[in-house]
Amino acid sequence: MTDSTKSAVRKPGKRERLVGAATRVLHEQGVEKTTLADIAQAADVPVGNVYYYFKTKDQLIEAAIGAHAEQFHTMTAALEQHAATPPDRLKALVQGWVDQRELAARYGCPTGTLCSELDKRADGLDRAAAGVMGLLIDWVELRFAEMGRPDSRELAVALIASYQGISLLTNTFRDPELMVAEGRRLQRWIDSLA
């Protein structure tokens, strides 16, 4: 086995497992209910080891926010690679949301839920989480600008607001089909703007 093959099959380290578990558990349980012990258990890391990597729960939350940003960059890079035109990229984004409808029905939008929870604390983590949402709005705005739309910022905010609203309703009513119907409407809307 070559060194590159070994690194390709390498099990994630404890820090990576903790961040991944924090991202998932914070979404599923909420910020206030989640303990470091919950995250350690989900990461299969002894709870005492958590403090080696993260001194406080807030540091782990900050790392989870960073993971949301990384996931965003990975997702948008894939959209850029696999969708030929700006409208196709936007519709693929919407389809990705629809594909995650069961998760939204159960827990809501991962980033939107985190932003909402952290906003109540107003301790700086709220602004960090808002930064991830800002990345999404900026990316969508650029796609609308590439379509020649002078109102690209307003359209970007409208698209993200529609998604956040349908995520809330899908979660509230535990009805993934709401996300499907809104996804179809948003894709038609994007087509009408091209």
Rank of each mutant, 00 (worst) to 15 (best):
T35A: 00
L36R: 15
L36T: 14
L36G: 11
D38T: 10
Q41G: 08
A42F: 15
A43N: 02
A43H: 14
A43Q: 10
V45M: 00
V50Y: 09
F54E: 03
D58K: 08
Q59W: 09
Q59F: 09
E62C: 02
A64E: 01
A69C: 05
Q71K: 12
H73A: 14
T74D: 09
T74N: 14
T74H: 06
M75E: 14
T76L: 10
T76N: 06
A78I: 11
A78G: 11
E80M: 08
A83I: 09
A83P: 02
A84R: 14
A84C: 13
P86F: 11
P87K: 04
R89V: 02
K91Q: 15
K91I: 03
L93W: 09
L93I: 01
L93G: 07
G96W: 05
W97C: 06
Q100E: 11
E102H: 12
A104N: 13
A105H: 00
Y107T: 12
Y107E: 06
G108W: 01
C109Y: 02
T111M: 11
T111V: 15
G112H: 00
D119F: 10
D119W: 06
D119A: 15
K120T: 07
A122Y: 11
D123T: 05
D126K: 09
A130H: 14
A130V: 03
A130L: 15
G131V: 07
V132K: 02
G134H: 07
L136H: 04
D138A: 15
E146D: 08
G148K: 10
P150E: 12
E154Q: 08
L159N: 05
S162C: 06
Q164T: 13
I166T: 14
S167H: 12
S167M: 13
L168D: 05
L169G: 04
T170A: 03
T170Y: 05
N171G: 04
N171I: 05
T172K: 15
R174P: 01
D175P: 02
E177D: 14
